[in-house]
Design a protein around this nucleic acid. Sequence first.
DNA 1: TGAAAATAGTACAACGCTTTCCCAAAAAAG
DNA 2: CTTTTTTGGGAAAGCGTTGTACTATTTTCA
Lengths: 341, 341
Amino acid sequence: MSVSIKDVATKAGVSISTVSKVINNWPTISEATAERVRETMRELDYTPNRRAASFSRRASWDLAFLAPLDKGRVFADPHLFEIMCGANSYVDKKNYHLTVVDVSAQSNTVESMRDIVSGQIFDGMIVHGSAITPEIGKLIIDKNFPHILIGRPEFETGLCWVDTNHVLEGSVAARHLAGSGCRSIAFIAGSPSGKLSRERIQGFLSVSRERRISVPEGFIRYTQDDFESGYDIMRKLLKLPSPPDAVICENNSTAIWVLKALKDGGAALPEDVSLVTFDDYPLSHLMDPKPTVVDIDVFDLGFQAGRALLQKIRNPELQIQSYTTLPRLIQRSTTASFSGV
Amino acid sequence: MSVSIKDVATKAGVSISTVSKVINNWPTISEATAERVRETMRELDYTPNRRAASFSRRASWDLAFLAPLDKGRVFADPHLFEIMCGANSYVDKKNYHLTVVDVSAQSNTVESMRDIVSGQIFDGMIVHGSAITPEIGKLIIDKNFPHILIGRPEFETGLCWVDTNHVLEGSVAARHLAGSGCRSIAFIAGSPSGKLSRERIQGFLSVSRERRISVPEGFIRYTQDDFESGYDIMRKLLKLPSPPDAVICENNSTAIWVLKALKDGGAALPEDVSLVTFDDYPLSHLMDPKPTVVDIDVFDLGFQAGRALLQKIRNPELQIQSYTTLPRLIQRSTTASFSGV
DNA sequence: TGAAAATAGTACAACGCTTTCCCAAAAAAG
DNA sequence: CTTTTTTGGGAAAGCGTTGTACTATTTTCA
């Protein structure tokens, strides 16, 4: 069998408690004995049994990361994994481990959630917003299980979350365009029912009002997940009696088609039309011209989620609800330099 | 405090052994008592403490997934995460959990490896090939720790691995082109030192010999990670006295530039030149024309790794070294239909 | 010098479950 | 009806730590 704390104690001529205290750096052990014990541990090639330790301590140093992990997810939603890496990078430093838990359609989400909040395997969890339903929210609150949601839930509960401020993202894009002289801006979004679209449009509109930028009827359009339709939308916008002098695309895939439409329509960037998209991507390097984007550091978002969760574990009363990661403008060749306020 | 097996036993009027046996579906308990115990568990809202169980059983049902998880990794290597999802999808069904462990440059890989193989936290591990050095390989073998590597290691040890057969990928690409009538094929690879390039080229060459396809000096070229250089390489190939009638690109990013070069050079696809790339990607939908690719189901690769690991855990003597996932050709508009053998 | 306080280490009861060995009662066999 | 076998269930010994309460020794201080 493998060597245990008992073997070390016997060999070093001390009690089990002493060895335990050496392992955990208790201050009440003299440096002399501590060193002797450590030496013995090395000699025996002893490693503490973390299973036993976590059982005894009633803490596992394991955290769950709940997200949809079905086939093809990485390509559909790379951010998810970047968030995971960020979260891991924080908690790892504090000696926690991150365990992935699938909550995609083919998994029994409610069951696994129930296991997690009451199975005493995990000390806490980070949950990707898309997995949250009111039922699950209630479960978490009832059990008072340490958690951080990525993304503010649509309904109000007492749940803790971190998020990026999508309204602000919309504002940043609009303000940049306004600052570089654009006076009439179109917005090509995904779907009117999406939270992301709604909030970014909201930010865009608030800046429009503030800067007295016209947003005529029909300047806010939706691709409804058919990115290619961005081409037609843009062509039609260009043919308007007074076409927009700037367009904000909600994603890069749409932007590719919009750029093509602009090229085919003979519009020069940024002279005739400026363009801003969201979420920088390696893809950007393949686009021509390379677009100005409003980017979010999703790794950092995960990092902040990890930090928030450990805070919450230490102090379960904490009510954490905050926009931790700010958007950042990366200017490339589809917009003119910021010339104004 | 939370409710334990003891509370259930008392309330149901049985011994704790009986409750334990009910939980673990031992056959020696009558259905009548079993149901009574289950009923009591429901009443008390009891969930077995998995920490205690795994301590007592000396098995945690936790598996480690070791891979580089540094910032930007998702975009640099999305396959990694698709593999992870695949592995999780298998082991999850068998009630195992997957825990991520960073082995990127900023982590102390050897240390975490040592912890894992002797800390008794994990029952096994899946290791992304890039993390393996001879030193680490030796550590794993010495401790005889259940493991599966993703990717055959470059040096021979007794380590267990699953991989896709890159040689075969090269063959599939070449055979498809040969079958559709191409007689002179160029290969634009990444770097001569890369295992991926080497093996795919090897497969390509073996088919070339077999089918007597000419591969003149200079038909095998390297972008050296500068994808954009694919443009110049292709332009020059086109200007040759006898240019290739097909080109194999090792990745889609290069293919984008090669396609542009073909378009600018006035070559029609697939009439003048055929093109095949590797690794299908959402990106493909943005390319014009859409390329024929030799694809590997990396989700399945992860899935097979999960399966292999659980086999290995059950039977530690097993020597698992196999190419589990076969390449698959997805024909699109850059090649003519397979017309030959 | 003697009492109080600080220091260094020990004994031992948890922690919640698994699992082996054992026993009683019921069923089957004689 | 006994004896043997089968069945259902219980008692208790771990599993490897932690952490509290305690003791013995040394130091400090009046």
